[in-house]
Amino acid sequence: MRPVLHRVVDRRRESDDVVTLALEPQGGRPWPFRAGQFHMLSAFGVGEAAISVSSPPGDAPVVEHTVRDVGPVTHAMCTAPPGTLVGVRGPFGTDWGIEGAAGDVVVAAGGIGLAPLRGAIHQLLASPRVERVFVVVGARSPAQVMFGEDLEVWATRGARVAVTVDVADRGWRGHVGLVTSLLGPLEYDPARTSALVCGPEIMMRFTARALLDRGVEPSRIRISLERNMQCGLGWCGHCQLGPLLLCRDGPVVTYDGAVPGLLLERER
């Protein structure tokens, strides 16, 4: 459970309360990980939080995490200036399964849910077996749309990118509406489509339903689930969701089997 020291070498603001931290291992290079996996990040003296890796797997000298300021640990992360030492453990959990992707791929993100998908989209666009990549993104407002530069890069590399917001002033030229409304007009072939969905659970549920209604196989819809994670190792018991230990069996799970019931389970 001992973290490896990393130095914050860059901090980029994505929106009001979201920053991307580039971390460099002290005296080394980042270890291998797969898109969709997460790390346990320590702010020394504050605590530890589970944060998905938001940069693509590869041989970059830094590994990026996109953090939203929602609690003491993430606040410390979001305000950590370059030079700060943080602790990193991992990588933990399941991934988006990009190696097996082929045909059409629909990537749907809500809010900060785009962060764990960012590396996956990079990889999809480089995969020879993947024909078309559709990226649909929902955000509260135009100011909350993250990774604007990436969205443009992905579009130039052949992804069909669409962004929608819940509300906007007239300066916004994009879509206004629910993220599922972007799925309807997409010309993917359901029989050869897999989908990666990440966002709030309600958003993932409705997005998955829209994909299922079009005929996408439930086993080919992957979603990323989140619960309280304190160890990443399956020891602490906090991340249970029914039969799943999400740090071990998740965060990425397929929609078929256990998940439809789980997402509707009244946990409260």
Binding site: G47, C231, W235, G237
Partner: peptide, 24 residues
């Protein structure tokens, strides 16, 4: 087997992470 993982800091600045039995 549930446990909480918590950090504390003492006056010297030393940080200690402890794992404590937790209850669901």
């Amino acid at each position: 087997f549930c446990s909480d993982v918590r950090d504390t800091t003492d006056v010297t600045g030393e940080v200690r992470r402890t794992r404590t039995w937790a209850s669901c």
